[in-house]
């Protein structure tokens, strides 16, 4: 077997003229991505050290670290960092934890399982603005929302969720979008588990709990790493849901880093300040992703 693979690997490497034409075919994609990833990055960095306001042309010139200084000393910024952390960690916990359990649940045989699975993964395919408005209006609206009606039906006073618990509510909406993603990935991974391995564990007398922790969970570790990595990237930049539901408010109660940068740049036209925020977002994303990418990269079949 291994002889065969090494032979075919050799063959892959060996095609005539591989070097030149391979590079030629790779070049356009690499060039485009290089421009896309480097130019904006450099510009963000550049702007972040400039006094630059779109509506105040008198303000210009080198700003040093002032933009960073103002940002870091701004309580709104700290609040937005906190909100970003709540959003990312909260949704990760819900989606990975719940996703693992649901993956195991929908791996079981039951009547209509196929349909149930399709229903569960559906929210992932709903565009963020629709999800947000769906929840804000149809579900959670304090007067017309279904949840409010249900609360009244059992004698409770309906809560204006987005006013009272804005961050928590946004987090739940986002979790509703991303839990299905985790289920989709983890269910696929669970199903790739070797049936014989499960049967062997069964013959060894392992109960359902032991099987879950000793067979299923280790098998899922790679898929879970992938889910965490991908969700982290998206969750750091949650924007549409906040814009549509709370517009970052009340006050800055539900403003995350992405929304703060947006409001600095496109509502206050402070290019310098927004860019400093952007640089910080990139740094955070890189710190968060660095070890995740490395963990996942080991698993990728290249």
């Amino acid at each position: 077997m291994s002889a065969v693979t090494t032979a075919s690997q050799h063959h892959r490497k060996a095609a005539i003229g591989a070097g030149a034409s391979g590079a030629l075919m790779l070049a356009p994609a690499v060039f485009v991505l290089l421009v896309w990833s480097v130019v904006p990055l450099v510009l963000t960095l550049w702007y972040s050290f400039q006094n630059y306001n779109l509506v105040d042309p008198t303000l210009h010139g080198f700003a040093g670290v002032n933009n960073y200084w103002y940002l870091l000393s701004d309580p709104d910024f700290l609040q937005s960092l906190l909100n970003t952390a709540i959003l990312v960690i909260g949704v990760l916990v819900i989606s990975v934890g719940g996703g693992t359990l649901l993956a195991v649940l929908y791996d079981q045989e039951f009547v209509g399982r196929g349909v149930a699975r399709v229903l569960v993964i559906s929210p992932f395919f709903v565009m963020p603005t629709v999800s947000a408005l769906l929840w804000k209006n149809l579900m959670l609206h304090p007067i017309y929302g279904v949840y409010s009606w249900m609360m009244r039906a059992v004698g409770l006073t309906p809560i204006d969720w987005l006013q009272r618990f804005p961050m928590l509510t946004v987090m739940m909406i986002v979790a509703w979008e991303w839990l299905p993603f985790a289920v989709l990935i983890l269910l696929t991974a669970v199903q790739s588990l070797d049936a014989e391995q499960k049967e062997a564990a069964l013959l060894d007398g392992a109960g359902p709990v032991a099987r879950f922790f000793h067979i299923v969970l280790p098998h899922l570790s790679r898929a879970i790493a992938v889910v965490i990595m991908i969700e982290t990237i998206y969750l750091l930049t949650i924007f549409a849901e906040i814009m549509v539901t709370t517009a970052g408010g009340p006050g800055v109660a539900s403003t995350n880093l992405a929304y703060l940068i947006y409001s600095r740049a496109l509502l206050q036209f402070d290019v310098g300040g927004a860019s400093a925020g952007g640089v910080i977002a990139i740094v955070i994303a890189n710190i968060a992703a660095a070890f995740l990418v490395r963990a996942v990269a080991r698993h990728l079949e290249v």
Binding site: L26, A29, V30, L33, W36, S37, V39, P40, L41, L43, T44, Y47, I233, L236, T237, F239, L257, A258, I261, Y262, A265, V271, A274, S275, G278, V279, A281, I282, A285, N286, A289, V293, A297, L300, V302
Partner: peptide, 19 residues
Amino acid sequence: TLLWMLSTRMLPPVGVLVP
């Protein structure tokens, strides 16, 4: 190259919104 391409996905869009 592949891993680098993957890493360009790590760039949070909001970080480069301004430019």
